[in-house]
Design a protein around this nucleic acid. Structure first.
Length: 106
DNA sequence: AGCCTGACTCCTA
DNA sequence: CTAGGAGCCAGGC
């Protein structure tokens, strides 16, 4: 974790299916300090649609989808397909779907 | 080469 | 609940 975009992608790539992580969580794991989430958002925004990165598993600190794509947001659709449920207001229950790096920290 | 924009988060009022 | 400000990087024109 040198604190570069590449690290962000690796962390995101490690997020297991059916789970989600917040920008701040990913940023922290990637080795970021301040302005954490910003760079994560920019990095993901800059990656290609064909990327192997499960960027849709990355959401904001409020537990809601970051990208605004409307009711047909690709991010939300993909998450629902993976088993992630959205509550009222499109909020995800981080208590249930929040990714815990500890189980992957092996 | 420079300027503008954008998928965040936190704090305070 | 909403509104505003600070702090960072990369891509597109």
């Amino acid at each position: 974790m040198t604190g570069s975009r590449a690290d962000i992608f690796e962390v995101v790539y490690k997020i297991p299916k059916g789970k989600v992580a917040t920008y701040g969580q990913v940023a922290a794991l990637a080795g970021f300090k301040a302005n954490e989430a910003r760079q994560v958002g920019y990095a993901l925004a800059a990656l290609s649609e064909h990327s192997a990165i499960p960027w849709h598993r990355v959401i904001n600190a409020k537990g809601t989808i970051a990208l605004k794509g409307g009711p047909d947001a690709t991010q939300r659709i993909r998450l629902e397909k993976e088993g992630v449920k959205f509550g009222a207001g499109g909020k995800i229950d981080l208590k249930r779907f929040g990714w815990t790096p500890e189980e992957e920290s092996a």
